[in-house]
Computed example of a mutant assay.
Amino acid sequence: MPDLSGKAALVTGCASGIGAATVRRLAADGARVFGTDLYEARGKALCEEVGARFAVQDVSDRALWPEIVAQAVEAFGRLDILVNNAGMVTGKSIGEVDDGTWDRVLAVNLTGTMAGCRAAIAAMVDNPGGAKGSIINIASTTAMAPLPTDVGYSASKGAVRVLSKSVATWCAKAGYAIRCNTVIPGATETGILDAAEADMPGLKAAVAATSPMNRLADPAETAAAISFLASDECPFMTGAEMLVDGGALSIHPGF
């Protein structure tokens, strides 16, 4: 179990799913956690449950990011971990997507992640004891095997993979001990999937079947991978992609 004692973490999209599981896991592993989300009631309740701090945040608001990071630093005296988890899906193909939907999904999933990295690095450089930290960006298997039914989500998550590598190598070349890695979850039991199942009965079973394990991931399984990357147990791991997909991308689609 990773030891995050004394570390300060910021987790976006903390109100449900992987974000909520991450807040719980990082806190259980000893970190002091600051969670953010657009959904105030759920996010605040979750953070209060585990003794974390909470703030309302729309990650696409680039101007708000330095303020959010400053709040975390003020609360904990430093920032060691950023988990860029907040995201959205659209369910619209290239034949259906409108400009507003395209702009919004890129603003949340890609620009929000970039702005978070930028603000976090600025804080981590000033950490007591020197520039050090771990940034974990949450992508998706659609970053490697895109969905024809969601062009915006697929494109934005693919871009997050490359963004993370650029951030990782820039920090390394600058001489900062700030790592940046990507977690790539497969189909996960979340509220988003529940809502989709209501509209498309049988979807969960079909999605679960994309993994040779024939099941959905529990959000806590992804949170465990995030905690490992947040810890000091992998100091030479940066610019990497950690698959938590139940083997979905390891099997030929015909089998």
Rank of each mutant, 00 (worst) to 15 (best):
A155W: 00
C47W: 02
T210E: 06
M114V: 06
T149G: 09
A63Q: 11
C47G: 02
T142L: 07
A248R: 08
T141M: 12
R118H: 13
P201K: 13
H252M: 08
A131T: 10
F76N: 04
Y39F: 12
A209P: 06
A41Y: 03
A155E: 05
L216A: 03
A70W: 04
D61R: 12
N109G: 01
P2T: 12
C47E: 04
I135Y: 03
M114R: 12
D61I: 03
K157R: 03
W102Y: 12
N181T: 06
I178C: 10
T222F: 07
A45G: 01
A21F: 10
L79G: 03
P219H: 10
G246A: 00
K173W: 12
I135A: 02
D80T: 06
P212T: 05
S250C: 08
K92Y: 12
A168Q: 09
A28W: 10
G247Q: 03
A177P: 03
T149C: 01
V167T: 09
G95P: 01
A70M: 01
V50S: 00
A196D: 07
H252N: 14
I94A: 15
M88H: 00
V56Y: 00
S154Y: 10
I226R: 03
I251C: 11
G133P: 08
C47A: 00
T210V: 02
V162Q: 14
Q57R: 05
R179I: 11
